[in-house]
């Protein structure tokens, strides 16, 4: 999918498909995101300090760490949702398919069309199930048959069989797990490249959680997934790469997050190279 920058050609005439090979990139996979020295401030207060890593394409990357370590903040930088928070500022560079996400020529709305998001609490619109899924394609002006788009999205979110007979019913009548899968269906209806998930299972029971984890494994063939989770077992179960963040205390007792270790999930959970990571994943702290 070509990367559009407000109807203008890419700066420097760079081909949109060129993706830099990051140092963390596993062989055979390219990185869709590259973060370099990314710091985030809210009204001047440091929230995340100098984070750098690469997110591989069509893999699941988990961000773990204690509350307040800035993993959600960082996730929201990847589709520029932080722009909506007054006073939020992002330093350093984040590239998406080789392009600077925070270049002044990049339209955040265009970014969010390609990088979808699923939130902690299921947030279906107070409309019908159909309208929830159809909203994205409609505002994006997608030309395909809307009924087909909705059906495909619901099928891919393995929700179709449960809701096909009540597409006109309110989405608010669904169970929490169904609502969250509807939110995933809604996100994939616009055919994004990446789906960001901010603790998508924290409000769900174990059975709904298992269904969403299954779904993530199915979806990673087509999408890159970045997931923030408090549940270490979940990170171990679903992700290919894991980034561990810790909370540091700076001047004036201000807390901010830092990346401690980023590696293959298997290594993080079996043989981490940093003592702090080991303490966290084995449950000694946090």
């Amino acid at each position: 999918m070509a990367w559009k920058v407000k109807e203008e050609p890419a700066p420097g005439g760079a081909a949109p498909d060129v993706t830099p090979q990051g140092e963390h990139a596993p062989t055979g996979a390219q990185n869709i995101f590259e973060l370099q020295a990314v710091s985030v401030r809210y009204s001047g207060n440091l929230a995340v300090k100098e984070v750098g890593f690469g997110v591989p394409t069509n893999r699941i990357t988990a961000l773990i760490g204690a509350s307040g370590c800035g993993k959600s903040t960082l996730l929201r930088c990847l589709n520029r949702m932080n722009d909506l928070i007054p006073g939020a500022r992002v330093e350093g560079t984040i590239t998406y398919k080789g392009q600077d996400l925070y270049s002044p020529r990049v339209d955040p709305v265009q970014v969010r069309k390609r990088i979808g998001m699923v939130f902690q609490k299921p947030n279906p619109f107070p409309k019908s199930i159909f309208d929830n899924v159809a909203f994205g394609p409609r505002v994006l002006g997608m030309k395909e048959d809307i009924n087909l788009l909705v059906e495909n999205a619901l099928r891919r979110a393995s929700l179709w069989d449960e809701v096909k007979d009540r597409l006109k019913d309110s989405a608010l009548g669904m169970s929490g797990g169904q609502q969250q899968r509807l939110c995933i269906a809604r996100a994939i209806a616009t055919e994004p490249d990446v789906i960001l998930m901010d603790e998508p299972c924290s409000a769900l029971d174990p059975i709904s959680t298992a269904r969403i984890e299954d779904l993530m494994n199915e979806l990673k063939d087509r999408y890159t997934i970045v997931i923030v989770t408090h549940n270490m077992q979940q990170a171990a179960r679903v992700s290919d790469k894991t980034a561990y963040f810790s909370v540091e205390v700076g001047d004036n007792d201000r807390r901010y997050g830092r990346l401690i270790e980023y590696d293959d999930t298997e290594r993080i959970f079996t043989n981490p190279s940093d003592q702090r990571t080991e303490d966290y994943v084995t449950g000694k702290v946090g």
Partner: peptide, 11 residues
């Protein structure tokens, strides 16, 4: 969350 949900879809 309604605003965020809509804007996260590229609205």
């Amino acid at each position: 969350s309604i605003r965020e949900g809509a804007m996260a879809l590229g609205a």
